[in-house]
Amino acid sequence: MDLVLGLVIATVVIALFFDYTNGFHDAANAIATSVSTRALTPRIALMMAAILNFVGALLGVGVAKTIKEILVGFDDMSSEHALTVVMSALVGAITWNLITWYFGIPSSSSHALIGGLIGVGLAAGVTVDWDKVVDKVVIPMVMSPALGFGGAFLVMLTIMWVFRRANPHTVNRGFRHSQTVSAAALSLGHGLQDAQKTMGVIVLALVAGGYGPTAGEREIPVWVVFAAAGAISLGTLSGGMRIMRTMGRRIIALDPPRGFAAESTAAVVLYGMAIGLHAPVSTTHTMTSAVMGAGATKRFSAVRWGVARGIVTAWIVTIPAAAGVGALTYLLLRLVIPGN
């Protein structure tokens, strides 16, 4: 086996491991509210999320194409050097995922990956398509939490007005059943968004190694789609109880109507960004903001804004932190991988 092929295989394996960490890191986003309101048991919720993550990953490749186009200019590099760049970006993203998972912070795997790509690109002298970063990453990064918070707030106000004369016990029971549907929709959206990011990186590695799709072939090979879908599903199945506690209880104790409002709103935002804009937005940011928005309808003081402030801080530092780890990894790998 030559060095380039070995690096391609290693990079693909690391990419799928990132996808796996994304699954267990972000599984809480889709199911935490349903579990905390007792609409679903953790075991059933995880099984449902894993299956629908897999299905969602098969529904489109627009986000994957966006991810693989963030870095350009690999043509002037050796295959070994280009693969070192991609591998380093993945290590940066995985490292940040594991750090935030350990501390139970619901940060963004998506932005960790994008931060890794940007950091390594700058360190390696690879051209970063800043127009695409602004249009497809920065603007949606701001829009999706705003839409999540505002949308969930309005949906919950509507629910409160429509059911203002209904028996609260009956309403809670009805929305507890409805949460099965909203959690399923969110899991599908999570697969549609997050698995595609790994697909894009794998294709980037294949192109860097000279094994990429040729003219006339699918931009994202079928085996890449199924491999990424399988990895994120397995990760989801392994759970993410640390983050689930933060999402389901520490931000605010949700009731079933508010859980439904948060989940349904976040799902709509994810679908719109993936299908309409092909933008790799954060499931974590969107869902956490939706939880805050739905919870704020009870009263603003009901939301534990201290916890929320810590989460927002993690959002802000995710891209630069992953970029820094990725750049450092690149500098180290250049010393040990021939051809750099």
Rank of each mutant, 00 (worst) to 15 (best):
I159D: 14
T127K: 08
L192F: 07
K298N: 01
P213W: 09
F175K: 10
A267C: 10
S187C: 05
T286R: 08
R258K: 10
L206Y: 09
I51S: 14
G151K: 11
L71R: 02
Y271H: 06
G23S: 03
I311N: 08
P42H: 07
A308V: 03
V162C: 04
A208K: 14
M241H: 13
E263F: 07
H111W: 00
W130F: 13
S233L: 08
S182Q: 09
V303T: 04
V120H: 01
M244G: 06
R43M: 09
G216K: 11
V72S: 15
F175D: 11
I51T: 12
A279M: 01
L5P: 03
G209V: 12
G104V: 04
I94R: 10
V72P: 09
D19H: 06
P221Q: 12
V4A: 14
V225A: 14
P145W: 07
V8Y: 11
T214P: 03
L58E: 01
L58S: 09
H169F: 07
V8S: 13
V291Q: 01
V155S: 06
R242V: 07
K197C: 07
D26F: 01
I159H: 13
N172C: 07
T198Q: 10
G324E: 01
H278N: 15
G248A: 11
S36Q: 11
A45S: 13
G73K: 13
M273D: 00
P280H: 07
G248N: 15
K136M: 03
A183E: 12
G230V: 09
T318Y: 03
M47F: 13
K132A: 10
R38L: 03
A183N: 13
T265W: 04
S178P: 05
I319Q: 06
L335A: 14
G248C: 09
A124I: 02
G191E: 01
M47L: 13
S289V: 06
L188V: 03
L254H: 06
G276A: 07
V336H: 11
I99Y: 02
V138M: 13
K132L: 14
F300G: 01
H285K: 06
A195L: 04
A308P: 02
F18E: 11
A185F: 12
T21C: 12
L90N: 05
A183R: 14
V13R: 06
I105S: 00
S178A: 14
A261F: 05
L254A: 11
F18G: 07
A183I: 08
A152F: 01
L122A: 04
G56S: 10
V224G: 15
I319T: 10
A253S: 13
A27T: 12
L270T: 05
V128Q: 04
V225T: 15
T297C: 04
G339Q: 08
I337K: 06
W315L: 02
G212C: 12
V281L: 12
V281D: 15
A228F: 04
S233C: 04
V61K: 14
P320A: 00
A146M: 14
T286K: 01
S238K: 09
A294G: 00
F149N: 04
S301F: 02
F163N: 06
I311A: 07
A146C: 10
N53G: 14
F175P: 15
G73N: 08
M77N: 08
T265G: 08
H190K: 03
F17L: 12
T170E: 14
T286P: 04
G295P: 03
Y211T: 06
G104A: 11
V126K: 10
P256E: 10
T198L: 05
A321R: 06
A308K: 01
